[in-house]
Amino acid sequence: MTALASHAAAPTGARSRLRRLADSERFLAWALLAPAVVFIVALVGFPFVLALLYSVTNVTVGTQSASFVGLAKFRQAMESPAFWGAVRNTFLFTLVSQALVIVLAGTLARLLMMEFRGKWFVRLLILLPWVAPISLGSIGWLWIFDSIYSVINWTLRHIGIFGPETWPIWLGQPTLAMASIITVHVWRMLPLAAIIMLAGFSGIPKDIHDAAAIDGAGFWRRELQIILPLVLPIVLVAVLFGIVFTATDMIVIFIITRGGPFDSTQVLASLAYYTGIDGGDLAEGAAISLFLFPLLVAIAYLMLRLARRTEVT
């Protein structure tokens, strides 16, 4: 055994050292983790620390120096009505779109569990919104909601639901604008949630379904007492991702409504951008963007704890 090992290590010193390194778990662990660590520190950690620093100063886009002002920028943000509107909109946007996503993704995942012809094609179609660049998809939606060329209006009028005088301006009326961005966001989040939930549903062994059928469970009993508790941990993970993605997202809003009309679709993320970058008040922008952070941390903590508690295997 020893003879064999020393023989294998014989050829060159450098190569054998490399091979030994590749066998060392401590080295490998760090080598494989390093890119991710660098990536997170540079693109998430650094900006986050910067935002923390900015939020307690009076830095603006044009200035070279900044001085410490304590929590003044937070106070300033909280005194503006636009801020509270954005808080309200963020909650509305997040809660409504997540509720829709979970219900629709659950339904979709159940449909995808069934066997039918052309299933691969349907799966592909469903993944498309997730794979395609979000800006591209949003621009498509921009046309769909266009005030003059809206396909929705055209279709609804042609099938006779709208009279010739009805002409909803999807992105121009506050309620419709919020409904529009929620629609786009649900369309965008649906694939990921559906795939996560599909994994949850397929994770339930066939024997469990069979046992429930033999034990005499009807549709509702099977859904509510067997399937739902078993997929709950995974659904919670999907909800957690959804909430964090939705509450911190501004791409859809940035492209489709720019927060308008009258700030009716302004959320905290977009307000922070408009205040900090467009408005030049970096410090207040940072303060606004940090507002949701403790809340999201609390939500993430709660969800992960809940998911662990309901874990069943």
Binding site: D207, A211, T310
Partner: peptide, 9 residues
């Protein structure tokens, strides 16, 4: 069942 198929929760 072979796997017993008990309801784990």
């Amino acid at each position: 069942f072979q796997s017993y198929a008990l309801y784990p929760h």
